[in-house]
């Protein structure tokens, strides 16, 4: 039996029909057509399906859609403002923080939650926040730098990206 659900996804109220055993991930992808959120391990181990639920990053594969009635869901599709990329998306593109791209939507959403509360997150804070988002391509360096860079740009700290690594290592660099 299917239940009528009212979900608030990226600020838009959506009425969908879904059975109780559908995860939020399945409903987003199959009923809402929002395939930006990726389907990875299905067991809460990889982070590919990370979305924000009331501003908090959660694994959409381990949340039932029926639990999300009238709650605020944010997915990667809601990040950009029309054609203008979110600073995180811009930073990922500019710094080459994506290779195959499968983990990227989950990385972006976890990083957004972090930067919303802590835009000047340290390297260790970024690594800790992203501990549940696996990337099998990049080796993480560029992802961590892109997140830090996006946060700093949004607060007006125009540190050149090449300095972030130096700054992380030494607590400062020649550009301040």
């Amino acid at each position: 039996m299917e239940t009528a659900l009212k979900l608030n996804v990226n600020g838009e109220v959506r009425q969908v029909l879904a059975p109780a055993n559908h995860s939020l991930l399945e409903v987003l992808r199959e009923r809402c057509g929002l395939t930006g959120t990726k389907h990875g391990c299905e067991l809460g181990e990889c982070g590919a399906c990370t979305v924000l639920l009331d501003g908090e990053p959660v694994l959409a594969c381990l949340v039932l859609a029926v639990e999300c009635e009238d709650r605020r869901v944010e997915t990667v599709e809601g990040l950009s403002n029309g054609a203008a990329l979110h600073p995180l998306q811009q930073a990922f593109a500019d710094l080459g923080a994506a290779q195959c791209g499968y983990c990227t939507p989950g990385m972006l959403m976890t990083a957004k939650a972090l930067l919303d509360s802590n835009p000047l997150a340290s390297e260790m804070e970024v690594r800790e926040a992203l501990a549940g988002n696996l990337c099998r391509c990049t080796g993480y360096w560029k992802i961590v730098e892109a997140v830090q860079w996006a946060g700093r740009m949004s607060t007006g700290d125009m540190v050149p990206p090449q300095c972030l690594r130096e700054r992380n290592a030494a607590g400062g660099c020649s550009h301040g």
């Binding site: 809460g44 982070g47 990370t50 908090e56 990053p57 959660v58 694994l59 381990l62 949340v63 976890t110 800790e128 926040a129 501990a131 549940g132 988002n133």
Partner: peptide, 9 residues
């Protein structure tokens, strides 16, 4: 325990 994403739930 686990990851921040799991700990949130």
């Amino acid at each position: 325990a686990a990851t921040p994403l799991v700990r949130n739930r």
